[in-house]
Simulated scan of single mutants.
Amino acid sequence: MDWLLPWAQRLEASAFGELMRTSTLLYPAANLLHLAGLVMLLGTMVLLDLRLLGLAREIPVDAASRRLTPIGIAGLALLLITGFGLFAADAGPLLGNALLQLKLLLVALGIGNALLFRALWAARLADWDRRPPLLGRLQVASSILIWCGVMSAGRLLAYV
């Protein structure tokens, strides 16, 4: 990540980084919105993933996906936007933090896993009501683990 350090230092020294550090409202608001985005993403994703694993079979998988996915995507967008703001306040030191690096790696894996899931299974979600495929269930279980890892690494950043 050393190649990103000059960019991170410029971001931290920018007017935006300064504003995020010094504003009595902006940083706390971004923090609260970041938490709201986390709830939106993880809440809907875990509900959908549990449905895909076989819980609440009375709800059709494609209906659950249609209703929950847009909320999860909005949560992810909120997380990315507010996360950038929170990062800007202390970008230089955070860039070298192993927990942040782990979190960013897990975010990339989580997004990649979700995109791969959509590519492989979106057209066949109705089939999951009868018999969820083993590979798909493994992918769903890994999704839960990945996003819980993102959440854990993010929360621990405040203490390291």
Rank of each mutant, 00 (worst) to 15 (best):
G92H: 03
P93C: 02
L86A: 00
L104P: 07
K103P: 00
L125D: 05
L80H: 09
A89Q: 05
A126R: 09
G112C: 06
P93V: 02
L120S: 09
G136H: 08
P132F: 04
G96D: 02
R137V: 09
K103R: 07
L102C: 15
A114N: 14
R131H: 13
A91S: 08
N113P: 01
D127P: 13
L100R: 06
D129W: 06
L134Y: 11
L86Q: 00
A88S: 08
A122M: 14
D90R: 11
D127H: 13
L80M: 15
L106H: 00
L116S: 09
G110Y: 03
V107L: 06
G110F: 01
G85S: 10
R118C: 14
D129V: 05
W128Q: 12
L80A: 15
L95W: 02
A91I: 01
F117G: 13
G92T: 11
F117L: 15
A98C: 06
A119S: 13
L105W: 08
A91W: 01
V107Y: 03
L120K: 12
A123H: 10
L94D: 04
K103A: 01
L99S: 03
L105M: 10
L135D: 13
A123Y: 03
I81D: 08
I81R: 05
L106V: 01
W121G: 03
L105C: 08
L106R: 00
G112L: 03
L106I: 01
A91H: 01
L125S: 06
L80R: 13
R124Q: 11
L80I: 10
G110N: 01
F117S: 08
L138A: 11
R130V: 11
A126K: 11
Q139C: 12
L109M: 10
A141R: 05
R137M: 13
